[in-house]
């Protein structure tokens, strides 16, 4: 009778290969983005209830808060990048027999993202 050998994946499998690590980072950034969203909703909610926006403003302008937001922004941008890269995988477009260049689709998605973001910033700053 043959005894076959099975080797289970080690716990740190995601440290074994750069691609696996990037994947894990992508998954973790989504957790960070979600956590931040919940935090925002909660702080805005409690600030509105207690009518204490000034405390919130004061906290937001501290260097701790600014550096936290820079980190969050970086994580969010990384995660957004992974979504833009994914778009052409899901959105396979054809022009007759020729597949529309995936980089073109990703590019259009990326540019659209920048424009919408820009427009939002402009609206807010107005």
């Amino acid at each position: 009778m043959t005894r076959e050998l099975t080797k289970p994946l080690p716990r740190n499998w995601w440290l074994k290969k750069a691609a696996y690590f990037r994947f894990m980072m992508r998954e973790l950034t989504s957790v960070a983005v979600l956590a931040y969203t919940l935090l925002i909703v909660w702080t805005l909610g409690s600030a509105a209830n207690s009518g204490g926006f000034s405390t919130l403003y004061a906290f937001l302008s501290t260097s701790l808060s600014v550096s936290l937001h820079v980190v969050i922004l970086a994580l969010a941008l990384y995660h957004t990048g992974t979504w833009i890269a994914l778009t052409p995988k899901v959105m396979v477009l054809w022009r007759d027999d020729e597949r529309v260049d995936p980089d073109f689709i990703a590019g259009v998605t990326g540019i659209s993202f920048l424009m919408i973001t820009g427009a939002t910033i402009w609206l807010v700053l107005m």
Binding site: L86, K89, V90, V92
Partner: peptide
């Protein structure tokens, strides 16, 4: 969507893309 299946595919099949589709 780790995407490594597509990276290693020797025949350029893109299974990761197929699964997302």
């Amino acid at each position: 969507y780790v995407g490594e299946c597509t990276q290693v595919c020797p025949k350029d099949v893109d299974p990761a893309g197929a699964i997302q589709m």
